[in-house]
Write a protein that binds this DNA or RNA. Structure first.
Lengths: 134, 134
DNA sequence: CAAGTACGTTTGCAATTGCAAGCACGTTGG
DNA sequence: CCAACGTGCTTGCAATTGCAAACGTACTTG
């Protein structure tokens, strides 16, 4: 399974870039990028870094996706990243945090209903989201 | 150029490990490790990660040393954190990213109008509004 | 001196990366 | 209709990765 390739393609689609556009932005040949996206090739760290920069996302993210770097708990990173983002106003920050919390709750609920037969309390027992720290 | 190699050797000496010991701990052949340490070969991300684990240091450190990973950039962390969050569905991810992008654009526009005296400086979005934080 | 060991290094070699060139398919529009 | 362009994909091929095997030492031992 090549989660990395589909993740890259996902991000590229998200950015509405063509394969060739990303290839040029990343300074990587388009055939190779195509093969990477389909999981036929495993790119080196350097190429991965270039792709990341072409996608305007951090290389670390791609490394995690590639299974090269260990996952630093994604759950907390989103909230802390939002909370620490100085480019947002406080109103915007709290909005994002609320939406994120809502999504989490939504998924939690869905997971719960889907797995009623199999045990309970699947994730954090944290009933309510913390609104905002600091 | 061989900053990475000498760094690895440095760390290995500091840990008082022989080349072969580290090679075994890292699950890498000793000849190859030797070549990496002397800068004759450039290891892939995977090998680098194994070496890092063999040295009991974070892979990130080695990536930075290898010039593959830049140190963390501030405003990109939110997007990357969202993108990497496995607990979200793709739909939720894109929603969050869109909202975040909209906020950024909003702030960018506001900063522009606020700074008419400084003429055009289109690219650098870095200035930011520090109107009310927390 | 020969034998055993631990050290880092050199040497072919299979496997892989990454690319330039070209292919196949779809959309325009002159 | 058929060039012209855009999309992604296939195909050789040079360059590189990474390894197993062997080498050259030094440092202990019998």
């Amino acid at each position: 399974m090549s989660g990395l390739g589909s993740f890259i393609r996902e991000q590229r689609d998200q950015a509405q870039m063509s394969l060739r556009q990303l290839a040029q932005a990343a300074n990587v040949s388009n055939p190779y990028l195509s093969q990477v996206e389909r999981g036929l090739r495993r790119p080196s760290a350097e190429i991965l870094g270039r792709i990341a920069s072409g996608l305007r996302i951090s290389a670390e993210t791609l490394y995690v996706q590639a299974g090269i770097l260990d996952q630093r708990d994604g759950d907390e990173t989103v909230t802390t990243a939002i909370a620490a983002d100085q480019t947002l106003t406080e109103r915007q920050r709290s909005t994002l945090l609320q939406i994120y919390a809502a999504f989490q709750a939504e998924n939690r609920a869905q997971a719960e209903t889907a797995a009623d037969a199999t045990a309970e309390a699947p994730l954090v027992d944290d009933g309510e989201n913390r609104e905002e720290q600091q």
